[in-house]
Every structure is written in C-alpha cells, then in structure tokens.
C-alpha cells in the first residue's frame, strides 16, 4: 500500500494524471503545494478523481494549510477530497507502507 503525493497543479502539469495511471488499489493520494489545485471542481482531473474514488475507493487527501494559503478552503472542492493537517500527513505516511512523491 503506497501513499502518493503530488505537488504540481493539474492545470499546467500532467503529473497527477501520470500518478493516477499507476496508482494501485488501496493506495491513497495526498495533494500538497500546487497539487491542491486538483481539488477544485474545475480541475482537469476532477472527473478522474471522482471516478477513482467511487469505483476503486481511492482515498484523496489535500493539505489544508496549502488549500488555505491559496484561497481554496472555502471554494467548491471535490466531494471526494478530504482536507488534512500536517499531523494527518505524518499519520498517513505511517499507515501506508511507503510514500511515492510525484514532483
């Protein structure tokens, strides 16, 4: 079980798409830094994230401090995205066997 992190915006990078290509069942995704723009309902990755969440039970997290810094916390975010703290990031890193960072 792998926790994947993505730190680039899906509006200008295909990193998230690449991550979702290889992400396995029971893996999870944590969006951080500019990666949190993927949590917007307008995100080019929105449909794919919702699909992975509903069909494969993919857990999708986004770092709340990064959402807040970018003015996104009160915006329309995808229902499948759970905002988390750094303490949660640490906990998730421990819960999964390893961490793959896409940057």
């Amino acid at each position: 079980m792998v926790l994947h992190t993505v730190n680039k915006s899906p509006f200008s990078h295909c990193l998230l798409e690449q991550c979702l290509q290889v992400i396995g069942d029971k893996h999870a995704l944590l969006l951080l830094e500019d990666g949190v723009y993927a949590a917007l309902t307008s995100s080019p990755a929105a449909a794919r994230l919702l699909q992975c969440h509903s069909e494969r039970a993919l857990a999708v997290y986004a770092l709340a401090p990064d959402l807040r810094a970018r003015g996104l916390l009160e915006r329309g975010l995808l229902a499948c995205v759970e905002a988390v703290s750094y303490a949660d990031f640490v906990r998730l890193a421990g819960e999964y066997d390893s961490v793959q960072s896409w940057f």
Binding site: N7, D66, S85, Y86, A87, F89, V90
Partner: peptide, 15 residues
C-alpha cells in the same frame, strides 16, 4: 515550497 513542506512535516512528526 519543498523545503518548507519538509520542515513542517518534520515539526509535525516530532510533535
């Protein structure tokens, strides 16, 4: 932002 994120992760881990 990478090193800033790392710093915050380190702080949270220690805490």
């Amino acid at each position: 932002q990478a090193s800033d994120s790392a710093y915050r992760f380190a702080t949270a881990a220690l805490a």
